[in-house]
Amino acid sequence: MRLEPTHYNERIGMDGYMIKTNDLSKSFDEFQAVDGVSLEIGAGEVLALLGPNGAGKTTTVRMLTSVLKPSRGEAYIAGFNVVEQPEEVRAAVGVLTEHHGLYNRMRAHEYLDFFGQVYGIKAEKRASRVHDLLDHFGLGEASDRRVGEFSKGMRQKLALARALFHEPPVILLDEPTSAMDPASAKLVRDAIRELRSGERAIIICTHNLTEAEELADRIAIIQNGKIITQGTPAGLKHEMLGPPEYRVQLTDKLNGRQPVLPDGGRITATGADWLQFFSEDVKGYNPQVVQRLVADGFRVLSMEEVPRSLEQVYLQAVGSSKENKHAQ
């Protein structure tokens, strides 16, 4: 089954979401793997799904590919219901699975061509796609080699090429750069960036927080099957770590002098020739800080936001979720 954009564009409707889940849940006997996940991802958006091992990321992906049936809730991919229209959903999704799942005795070009046939792509188009994708991922010269001879990174790139082969409107990537050397990982990250388009939504499940921050428009953190928080990287940092802090570098040492800041903010740390502060109203407050310091005789060399990593957000979110669970 080959899906053309016209097939799903009409179905996405007014809300414009390529991926939409509502209370999506999955239990295996008594084990609740995914519990009430609600996500809305629009065309052109990239969402990073973060979470510890066994948090429910892969189960969520499998429900979104109609491989697992939800125990509760609903999900739509490109406007197709994952329970009622499984074939259409699968045709609309390109998935990079946790395990590469390659056929070792096939040659790289044969492997891609086989999946192209499964997705109903015509022979001429398949030939050009095989050529383009292998070249794009630096596998052109290995096109005629057996997949069993490939390195881990090459296998990962071939699996990614397979996921993209039928140009799906929704792409689900489970650990896309794991087991890759830095150069290959960069290549894949660049490819993901290029995939971002007005007609496509992407979910990346990853443990690599830097990668998530670099690629994703939004982050969702999942733990014990539940989305514990979601938002833009900046929004999450603000929510989890409070307002941003700024560091003022002075030209001279403080030498025991204590700077005084205007009302509306407070100093959080000082050093020999610097100070750190925060305020809820960055735009209004920061110029006042500079003015006040200059007025008090300090010479300001620079002022910049103190960098905060997604790792801090993640650890805070996962930690507080654990604490809440214990408290309950």
Partner: peptide
């Protein structure tokens, strides 16, 4: 098997 199961 999973890529096959995820296909249409």
């Amino acid at each position: 098997i999973e890529p096959l199961l995820s296909s249409p």
